[in-house]
Design a protein around this nucleic acid. Structure first.
Lengths: 228, 228
DNA sequence: GTGTACGAAATAATATACGATCTCACCACG
DNA sequence: CGTGGTGAGATCGTATATTATTTCGTACAC
């Protein structure tokens, strides 16, 4: 969302408040996938009427965080493996482009910041803290996107990340063997940026970086399912 | 959108009707960019209350067809040149991927259909009919996307096309010198598909095809602005 | 015992009503 | 002549009320 401008409305509308409320609940896993969102209940909790809550839920539906069924209700989206795969594909596509498009505008200082974060990421491996790892990983990529000139695509990246955050605790998690490779790939990407590599080369590197994470996750899931 | 399932609800909800109504008005240019969407007026015209209309407008806002301002109202989105460029970039990205991802699943019959449409496209050049050209062009690309396995990305393609259709009559138009090249590029893309080219090669070809259209449009606009 | 019909409770969908906010024309004043 | 205040009208934002739909439990028939 990247705080669209200087002056956010002084008093956010109630539908906006409802939107923020529900979204944060989803992202911090207070509402887990499958959780049923009942208009009246949420409205009562927020001290507003159902109309703004309804609007908030439909916005979240448009973003794919919530599933909605006519005359039945809404629930937090459940990403079955197929959904998950599709989301990651989309994210790899837009993330790859955003990285490549941002690279020409990066300063050496930006690269240094990214590298510092990646070092912290490598450090965090010793403590085995998936949550910290995920947060730092987002920070790293955020630096890479910072100068992306296409706000639509940045928006799509945000949405993809929001969906991942939504299932951080349940389905998605940091895959043990994968993290180290991930750090190495980050460094490789930084190298491509510093050497002014061909845009498409960088785009593919960034894309494959995410797809590799997807593959690792799927393989891990498959492995753990076979040996319960 | 791709009619999600067999049984669409028998009686579409009123908010859905409002959504379809407004969207079709935008796409057929009854509502031109900048047109002010007044809740009460549209509600009266449809014989419903303002609540479903409001919901429809906010859905359209999420899709980028409508611009909304708090306590002021909504209007049909106006794509300034920057917006236009950004939309086309995004479209080129997702379209390129969708084409490459769909190609492996295309039958020779699909390719033949696409080629037939492209022939009709070439034929239409003699009549200088931009509207027919645009429609056939969409048909052509639709065949290329048909087997894309990622519904999210297909959705993004749809949204991009919707924005283009919205300004067909006003800003966007078929650029005289460009159409012939476009037909040739279509044929080249079909050639790549038939020869089972590398996915990346096909993706880039499809992407550049659209970016070339963008460039031609911008150049044309620049040219006509200099000699008024 | 199983399946079906019925009805009540829960919930969503929409209508209506009212209050809040913005826009803009008009006028007072410098 | 320009600048800022002020009020009316238009329009949005939300609360409340009403209607429609679904769900689920229960009783009845077979």
């Amino acid at each position: 969302m990247a705080g669209s401008a200087v002056a956010a409305t002084l008093t956010p509308s109630k539908s906006q408040r409802a939107y923020d409320f529900i979204k944060s609940r989803i992202e911090d896993s207070s509402y887990t996938p499958g959780y049923r969102l009942v208009l009246g209940a949420i409205a009562a909790e927020l001290g507003v009427s159902v109309v703004p809550v309804r609007e908030a839920i439909r916005r979240l539906e448009a973003e794919g965080l919530v599933q909605f069924e006519r005359n039945v209700g809404a629930q937090v989206a459940m990403l079955d493996p197929t959904e998950y795969q599709v989301t990651m594909q989309t994210l790899s596509l837009v993330e790859g482009w955003a990285t490549a498009a941002s690279a020409p505008h990066m300063t050496s200082d930006d690269v240094a910041r990214a590298r510092a974060i990646n070092d912290a990421l490598a450090e965090s491996l010793h403590h085995f803290d998936p949550v910290a790892f995920t947060a730092l990983n987002l920070d790293f990529h955020s630096v890479l996107f910072e100068h992306c000139p296409n706000p639509h695509i940045l928006d799509l990246v945000d949405r993809g990340w929001a969906r991942l955050r939504a299932l951080r605790e349940s389905t998605f998690s940091f895959v043990p063997g994968r993290a180290r490779d991930s750090v190495a790939e980050h460094e490789a990407i930084l190298g491509l940026i510093e050497s002014n590599a061909e845009p498409f080369e960088l785009e593919l590197a960034a894309r494959n970086h995410r797809l590799a994470t997807l593959d690792a996750f799927l393989a891990h899931q498959h492995r753990t399912r076979e040996t319960p």
